[in-house]
Design a protein around this nucleic acid. Structure first.
Length: 813
DNA sequence: GCAAGGTC
């Protein structure tokens, strides 16, 4: 029997499609990567009985990157990234071993059916799958077609079965348009990002961002936030006047009348109206009209709308919302949360979804009433062909008929009921006055407004919008203020104003749509892939050179907000060349700067830097500094010069003294190294000479820390080695009063791993060990390194959590 | 260390 191999875009879809096609008659097993499942069944395919194997990938199989040597920021001119630097496809997620998985499952198959999402990205993934699988499939006999593409627009029985009965071919042009998109984004984004980062970090000391990134989506996203900022800044309040009249209605109540002119901006005119009105003693009803307004019933929920509501009403950021939605999905509370679709398929069982909610404490009554009286289907939305709209699947805790009962935030607020009036009624005028008011500036952009703008301009997709917003926050271009309003930082403002000054297209939202237009020509087969790519790259290469040549324009803006390197930081360690103090710049990325030599030396990040006892590197005379990740973490000394310019061939940039192979320097790996790391492959446990009296050795590659000889007076690494394990012996001196050594001894020399006297003095409790000596003594594996410590301070949240429904209501009303 | 697009 022949085998048909079928591949969907994600595991959940492989399962749903296999279930439909096999009518539930399938066997399933997990694939070798643990992420994808394989569903098998027998059925018929082009007139023969065959064995079906349905599985999936996890999104893109491959990703595009420059070949290795072009990833060296110090040696490559960013301008080379536009044409000279070759690119290569790498596995998108090496941990998933997707190529191997596809080859294991696809080996020896006769046909392949591609069930990837029916969009351009999906078409591109088709070819990624084919590149992996075709070489291991059985070779076709003669001219028989073996590659098929299923085209479907919803995951319903009819649609999936129709797709299976009308298989086509994958679309090479659509896939190529994605290849072009990837290459353009990579080359343009990386070239601008590297140039800006290196240029500005080489000049300013307080940018507080380790990366000055640029991208065709993130930059316009930032642009929207700065545009609003500029409107606020340039806003000039204007004074205006409002005429207000109150009349007596019935006995006690007073009624405030609204002015049909609303307001005037001229004081004298306002005064004139006031004078005219003041003459009147009575107000007469001229006419009475009634209007009935109905609110359209809502659309079904898709991802982007979910993100908007969560941000505006619940104060949750898009990234956080997606994490929670993912969890609700896996726990079975909601349907698949990543969908563009706002339309339920015609045969979608809305009543069944409702039945799941009949015991919900909040809306059980509404649900029961709906079930007995019949459901009004949601407004017809857009079917993107991916997943049904996001639907509750199980009742969770959180009331008139109609949707505003359970979605009160969508309801039209009950207006104060107007008093009964008839044409010709006359009310006595109680008071007439003039109110002086001022126009107010707009507020900063809310995240929900930003999402709307991004969607409107085609910046990003439902899946990538949260990523772009997150990016501009992490790069310190904007901060999230109360009410999830996005306020640009000085850095964000200066960047955007700089782009406007040099080349506004770099920040305008049209930059993305213009490129997409070109890409669509490739997809439609109207333009040649290579030509479009070259043409567009050429345009951006010119823009890049113009930007580089005009960077002084941006500098003028930078100088106003930021300090030059030479004027930043505190003197810390002495330069080995001029012997003057270099300044330690703490702002991200932390570094040392010698104003005299005009040199910058990068430092390890995410820790503290101190002077290391004024000790000097024997190679270059630079004063050593001590990096520490905190009292519970690790620390090591480093030479600022060697850290940036590795002194020996077997060393790389970014190595401290604990990795230095200097044969005789007292701080080097050669002198302080004790033995192989108990966890990682290439690491060496190195004595931390600053750690006493809580002595420890730390791996110079991974986060393993070994505590030993607490309260010892002195711990030294001996030149001798252990006969059985080859580790360096350690000499330990204890004070007489505190010595844990047997028989009143205060000194002992031995192997940390093998010496029985040392066994109880070496606490490997923080990291499991694979060393023969300690095998079996399985300690608890506990990361002790950076970022794994306890959170500082358990400060309670000062604000009480808001009532969520009230928050939702406040947003929509 | 970089982009944006999939998805886990």
């Amino acid at each position: 029997m022949k085998t048909v191999f079928m591949v969907a875009e994600k595991p959940s879809l492989a399962q749903s499609i296999a279930k439909i096609l096999s009518r539930g008659n399938m066997t399933s097993h997990k694939g070798l990567n643990g992420a994808c499942s394989v569903h098998e069944y027998t059925g018929s395919f082009i007139g023969q009985s065959v064995h079906f194997k349905m599985t999936s990938v996890c999104g893109h199989v491959m990703t595009l990157d420059f070949i290795g040597k072009y990833n060296n920021w110090d040696k490559v001119d960013p301008a080379e990234l536009f044409s000279k630097a070759p690119t290569e496809k790498k596995e998108a997620n090496p941990k998933l071993t997707m190529v191997k998985f596809l080859q294991v499952e696809g080996r020896g198959c006769d046909y392949i059916v591609l069930w990837l999402d029916c969009d351009k990205e999906g078409e591109n993934i088709c070819f990624e799958v084919l590149d992996s699988v075709i070489p291991v499939m059985n070779k076709p006999r003669g001219t028989e077609k073996t590659v098929y593409r299923a085209k479907f627009s919803s995951i319903t029985d009819t649609d999936i079965c129709n797709a299976m009965n009308s298989l086509g071919e994958p679309n090479r042009n659509e896939a190529l348009s994605v290849d072009a998109r990837q290459e353009l984004d990579l080359r343009i984004g990386c070239a601008f990002t590297r140039f800006q980062t290196k240029y500005f970090q080489g000049k300013y000391g307080n940018l507080d961002s380790s990366l000055i990134s640029f991208g065709p989506c993130q930059t316009p996203t930032l642009g929207f936030c700065v545009e609003r900022h500029d409107k606020i800044q340039s806003f000039k309040p204007e004074t205006y006047w409002v005429l207000q009249a109150k009349v007596n209605h019935e006995k006690e109540s007073s009624l405030t009348l609204e002015w049909d002119r609303v307001r005037v901006f001229d004081r004298e005119i306002a005064q004139m109206f006031l004078n005219i009105t003041k003459m009147a003693r009575e107000a007469k009803v001229e006419s009475v009209s009634k209007k009935e307004k109905a609110k359209q019933r809502p659309l079904a929920l898709n991802t982007v709308e979910m993100l908007r509501v969560a941000s505006a009403a619940l104060g949750m950021g898009p990234q956080h919302t997606m994490q929670i939605a993912e969890r609700l999905y896996t726990q079975g509370y909601i349907s698949y949360p990543r969908t563009e679709t706002t339309h339920y398929p015609e045969n979608f069982d809305l009543k069944e979804s409702l039945r799941q909610q009949t015991n919900n404490p909040y809306w059980a009554e509404t649900v029961k009433a709906l079930l007995s009286e019949g459901v009004n289907r949601p407004r017809k939305g857009h079917d993107a062909g991916d997943h049904p709209p996001i639907t509750p699947m199980r009742a969770a805790t959180e009331a008139e008929l109609g949707f505003t009962d359970i979605m009160p935030w969508q309801s039209i607020p009950l207006e104060e009921s107007l008093p009964n009036c008839e044409k010709g009624d006359v009310f006595p005028v109680n008071e007439v006055k003039l109110l002086e008011k001022q126009t107010n500036p707009p507020d900063y952009l809310t995240e929900a407004e930003l999402i709307t703008l991004m969607e409107k301009h085609g910046i990003g997709t439902d899946a990538s919008i949260p990523v772009h917003i997150n990016n501009i926050c992490q790069r310190n271009y904007v901060t999230v203020e109360s009410g999830r309003r996005l306020k640009p930082t000085n850095l964000g403002i200066v960047l955007v104003h700089g782009y406007y000054k040099i080349d506004a297209e770099l920040v305008l939202p049209t930059i993305r749509s213009a490129v997409e237009k070109q890409l669509n020509l490739i997809a439609q087969g109207k333009a040649n892939y290579q030509q479009v790519l070259e043409h567009t790259l050429d345009i951006f290469k010119r823009k890049f050179h113009y930007f580089v040549d005009s960077i002084a324009g941006m500098d003028e803006l930078m100088e106003v907000s930021f300090s030059p390197l030479a004027a930043t930081g505190k003197p810390l360690s002495r330069c080995g060349k001029c012997h003057r103090f270099m300044k330690y710049i703490q702002a991200k990325p932390s570094r040392l700067h010698c104003s005299h030599c005009d040199e910058t030396y990068s430092l390890p990040q995410n820790g503290t830097i101190k002077l290391y006892k004024e000790l000097r590197c024997p190679l270059d005379d630079f004063e050593l500094v001590l990096w520490s990740s905190g009292s519970r973490g690790k620390s090591y000394p480093l030479c600022p010069y060697c850290y940036n310019h590795p002194p020996f061939r077997d060393m790389k940039k970014g190595m401290g003294c604990n990795e230095c192979t200097h044969p005789t320097c007292q701080h080097s790996l050669s002198m302080l190294g004790i033995g192989q790391c108990v966890e990682c492959e290439n690491g060496v446990l190195v004595l931390d000479p600053t750690s006493g009296p809580k002595w420890k050795m730390a791996c110079n590659k991974c986060n393993v820390i070994v505590h030993f000889f607490e309260n010892a007076h002195k711990v030294r690494v001996s030149p001798e080695t252990c006969e059985s394990c080859d580790a360096a012996l350690v000499d330990v001196d204890f004070n007489k009063a505190k010595s844990p050594l047997p028989g009143d001894e205060t000194q002992h020399s031995g192997c940390v791993f093998c010496d029985p006297v040392f066994q109880d003095l070496v606490e490997l409790k923080h990291a499991a060990t694979r060393h023969p000596m300690h095998r079996g003594g399985q300690g608890r594996r506990q990361g002790r390194g950076r970022g794994k410590g306890r959170r500082p301070g358990g400060r309670p949240n000062p604000k009480r959590p808001k009532d969520k429904m009230a928050a939702l209501a406040a947003y929509f009303v």
